[in-house]
């Protein structure tokens, strides 16, 4: 897995390896590999609790229509020539909302046309269709809930622009029990590598 740092700590070796695989699978499924740069997980089987802390990479910029489609004016129409279908659904939703469903025509899979009398090519090029930053925190916390053992419904979590931690348990989480590990691991991640500045 392409994380800069990835460690799972647990006193049971087979469980540790299993949770390493689960974390890798979940991050991959939710397309978070490119977003998370460091991840540390500790599973304490006696308390019991699940703790995860990590560092996020710099977010990719918002995706505009010009990033994945050629925009041309042809025969009184603005023609969008799609080169990457990945953001097609989001783009159509935005265009339908703005120009009306009957005015956004898709003659084939990779082409969308709009009457140029109602639309401006430059405006369409600059239209943002997807901004990962808006959904990333939700996705990240969902991923951590998914990775954590299911019965651990008592949760505390914290996310900012670069860092996050998440702790969950089936027992009451008192500050005395978790503050130590949170500060220790966040300091470790901060001191370890180029993202360290964020923790200073």
């Amino acid at each position: 897995m392409a994380l800069d740092y990835f460690e799972v700590e647990c006193r049971e070796e087979s469980g540790r390896l299993a949770y390493k695989d689960i974390a890798a699978d979940v991050l991959q499924d939710l397309d978070l590999i490119k977003v998370v740069s460091k991840l540390y997980i500790r599973i304490d089987l006696d308390f019991p609790f699940f703790f995860a802390a990590g560092v996020l990479r710099k977010m990719p910029p918002p995706v505009k229509i010009s990033d994945f489609a050629g925009v041309m004016v042809r025969d009184g129409n603005i023609v969008l020539d799609i080169t990457d279908e990945r953001y097609m659904a989001q783009m159509l939703t935005v265009l339908w909302e703005r120009y009306g469903r009957d005015r956004v025509i898709q003659p084939d899979r990779f082409t969308v046309t709009i009457d140029s009398s109602i639309a401006d090519a430059k405006e369409i090029e600059d239209t943002v269709v997807f901004d990962q930053r808006q959904s990333i925190y939700k996705d990240l916390l969902y991923a951590l809930q998914w990775i954590a053992p299911e019965g651990f419904r008592v949760r505390r979590e914290w996310v900012d622009d670069h860092r996050f931690w998440y702790v969950s348990s089936e027992n009451t989480l008192s500050p005395q029990a978790i503050d130590g590990i949170i500060s220790e691991k966040m300091a470790m991640l901060a001191a370890d590598g180029e993202d360290g500045g964020a923790f200073a």
């Binding site: 647990c10 049971e12 469980g15 299993a18 599973i43 019991p48």
Partner: peptide
Amino acid sequence: FMLGNFETC
């Protein structure tokens, strides 16, 4: 019975 990964649990 499909149980999990930790023998302690």
